[in-house]
């Protein structure tokens, strides 16, 4: 026991560890992720019926989804959905809203400046940095190719 070989130990632990239920997780992610998208489409159709054009509807839909996700997070329900759905509720825009609202709620006790505002992006921050960063790079490449 004195000289544990770290590589052997890691192999041994991996052989003992319970295997993640990948298929079940994928099915749940597909169902819940799909339902969120279908609901988004429903919102789009609904607002277009009320006279919004396609571009306006493309703005109204994510706004509504973000609001609903923030509401469900505040009510303590989104984490329960996320537990079952995994990537199905993390990948859509609702997951992004949850990732911002959850820390904002959690760190409210540390104040509105150093708590809510500073900690709001601890989960979603990397997505913003690399998302915006890569979109700028892609934009520049597109511009150069077009020219």
């Amino acid at each position: 026991m004195k000289n544990i070989n770290q590589k052997d130990y890691e192999k041994y632990v991996n052989s003992k560890a319970p295997k993640p239920t990948l298929l079940k997780n994928c099915i749940w992610a597909f169902i819940v992720g799909g339902l969120i998208c279908v609901f988004g489409q429903f919102i789009t159709n609904f607002v277009m019926d009320y006279g919004l054009d396609k571009k306006e509807a493309a703005t109204a839909t994510p706004i509504t989804l973000i609001f609903l996700s923030a509401l469900l997070t505040g009510l303590g329900l989104y984490d329960k959905i996320g537990k079952k759905a995994g990537a199905g509720s993390i990948v859509p825009i609702t997951g992004f809203a949850n990732a911002i609202v959850a820390p904002a709620m959690e760190f409210k006790r540390e104040g509105f400046v150093l708590g809510v505002a500073a900690k709001m992006f601890i989960v979603a921050g990397p997505v913003l940095v690399y998302g915006i960063g890569s979109s700028v790079i892609v934009g520049i490449i597109y511009l150069l190719l077009k020219a």
Partner: peptide
């Protein structure tokens, strides 16, 4: 993670 964050906990 913050309590309300909707993530999945590993089995271990």
């Amino acid at each position: 993670f913050p309590l309300e964050h909707g993530n999945q906990r590993p089995l271990t």
